[in-house]
Amino acid sequence: MSAKYPIISVTGSSGAGTTTASNIFNRIFSDEGINAGMIQGDSFHKYTRTEMSRRAAKGHYGEWNHFSLDANHVDKLEALFQDYAATGTGQYRQYVHDDDYALIRQGCKPGTFTSWMDLPANTDMLFYEGLHGGILTDQVNIASHVDLLIGVVPIVNLEWIQKIHRDTQFRGYSKEAVVNTIVNRMDDYVRCIVPQFSNTHINFQRVPMVDTSNPFVVSDVPTDDESMVVIHFRQYSEVDFPYLLQMINGSFISRQDTLVIPGNKMPLAMDLIIRPRVKELMAHRVYG
C-alpha cells in the first residue's frame, strides 16, 4: 500500500458485474478531477485467443478458462502493483477486444495483446478491474498492495445466468458451449476466484428475489428491481450506517458488518460508500 501512489482494485469473475462498478468509479474520477491509470485484468492473460483455444483442445485449462492462475501473468500484475506503489509507474499492456477499433486501426489483431509499455506519467492513482485483483497465495500477494479492494460477486446461480445470457446473446456462443465453459472453470473458480472475497475491504453481492434454482433454464436475467444487494464491510466500525440507512430507501442492517439494499439502489450505494474513500485516498496522497 502507498499513501503517495494509491491502488484501487475491483475484482470478480466473468459476468459478475465488475464493468458496472468500473463505470461508477470512472464517474467518480471524472467528478473529482482524478487522473487514474486504468488497468484491465485481461491484459495480464498469458495467452492470445488462438493460443488459449489450442491449449483447450489439448485439455489444458478448458475453453476460455482464464480463472486459472497458471493462465495469467499474476507475477507481472503483482510487480506492477509493487512498482506503482513505490514509484507511481510500472509496466502494463492492453488486450485487444473485438470492438477496440482504435487499436485495430493501428494494426493490432483482436484476441492478441499490445506490447508491454510504461504507465502514463503523473497519474493520481491506479485502478484495476479484473479477475485477480485480490489474489493471495504462497507465491503472490496482490491483495497486500491494494489500498481499496472491492469485490463484486452475485450469488453463483445469478452469476451463471448473467454469463449464459451475455455469451449467447452478445458473443454468439451456444448455450451448450457456455455451460461447458462454466463446468470446465469450476475448479479454478473455487480455488482462485472465491478466496479473494475474504481479502476485500467491501463486497457487493447481488441476490435475486425470484426463483433461480435451475440457472440453466432461466430465460431472463433477474432485474435490479427483482434483486437485493448485500454489502459487507471488513472495517465496519468506520461505516456510518445511520447515514446510509437514511440516504438509501428500503435499506436495512442484517448484521453489524452488513447492509442490505434494494438492487436498483446499488449505483447510489456505491457512490455514497466509495466516493468518500476515493477522496480520502487523494487527501492522503496530497497531504500525507
Results as ranks from 00 to 15, higher is better:
Thr89Val: 10
Tyr95Pro: 02
Ala269Gln: 04
Val179Arg: 06
His97Asp: 13
Gly15Arg: 00
Gly111Leu: 05
Arg285Trp: 12
Ala283Glu: 13
Asn23Ser: 13
Ile253Cys: 15
Ile34Phe: 07
Gln162Asn: 15
Gln246Asn: 15
Val153Ile: 11
Thr112Gly: 13
Arg255Gln: 14
Asn35His: 12
Lys163Pro: 01
Arg27Ile: 05
Asp42Thr: 11
Leu80Phe: 07
Arg234Phe: 03
Gln256Asp: 15
Asp70Ile: 01
Lys76Tyr: 13
Phe170Leu: 10
Glu32Pro: 01
Lys279Val: 14
Asp138Leu: 08
Glu280Thr: 14
Phe197Thr: 04
Val221Glu: 08
Ile150His: 02
Ala57Leu: 11
Gln205Ile: 11
Phe241Pro: 02
Asp225Phe: 13
Arg206Met: 12
Ser68Gln: 11
Val146Asp: 03
Pro262Asn: 10
Glu51Thr: 11
Pro6Tyr: 05
Arg255Thr: 15
Val194Asp: 08
Lys163Asp: 01
His132Val: 05
Asp75Cys: 10
Pro154Phe: 06
Val96Glu: 03
Ser53Gly: 11
Arg285Phe: 10
Ser53Pro: 00
Pro208Trp: 03
Pro215Ser: 13
Lys4Tyr: 09
Val260Ala: 03
Ser2Pro: 03
Ser2Phe: 01
Lys58Ile: 00
Ala16His: 01
Ile135Gly: 00
Val218Gln: 11
Ala79His: 11
Met38Asp: 12
Glu159Ile: 00
His45Trp: 11
Arg277Asp: 02
Cys108Pro: 00
Thr223Glu: 12
Thr212Met: 09
Tyr61Asp: 01
Gly130Trp: 04
Thr11Ser: 14
Phe252Thr: 10
Glu78Ser: 06
Val153Gly: 03
Gln91Thr: 15
Arg277Lys: 15
Tyr95Asn: 05
Leu158His: 03
Leu119Glu: 01
Asn35Phe: 09
Gly134Asn: 05
Val286Pro: 00
Ser115Cys: 05
Ala143Ser: 15
His284Arg: 15
Asp224Ile: 07
Tyr101Gly: 04
Val140Gly: 02
Ile273Ala: 06
Asn214Pro: 15
Ala85Glu: 04
Thr87Ala: 09
His284Ile: 09
Thr258His: 06
Leu149Pro: 03
Phe204Glu: 00
Leu80Cys: 07
Arg55Trp: 02
Asn184Cys: 11
Asn26His: 13
Phe25Trp: 08
Gly59Tyr: 04
Ile34Glu: 07
Val74Thr: 02
Glu63Val: 12
Gly263Ser: 12
Thr168Lys: 02
Asn26Asp: 13
Lys58Cys: 08
Phe25Asp: 00
Lys46Leu: 08
Val10Thr: 12
Leu77Glu: 00
Pro195Thr: 08
Val217Thr: 15
Pro222Tyr: 05
Phe25Ser: 03
Val178Asp: 00
Ile202His: 00
Val194Gln: 13
Val156Asp: 10
Pro262Leu: 06
Asn35Val: 10
Met209Thr: 12
Ser43Gln: 05
Thr200Asn: 14
Ile39Glu: 01
Val229Glu: 02
Tyr101Ala: 11
Phe44Glu: 01
Ser22Trp: 07
Leu244Gln: 10
Gly37His: 01
Gly12Pro: 02
Leu281Met: 13
Thr48His: 06
Gly134Leu: 02
Asp31Met: 12
Asn184Tyr: 09
Tyr173Val: 00
Asn264Val: 09
Asn23Val: 06
Asp220Tyr: 12
Ser9Cys: 12
Met266Arg: 07
Thr212Glu: 07
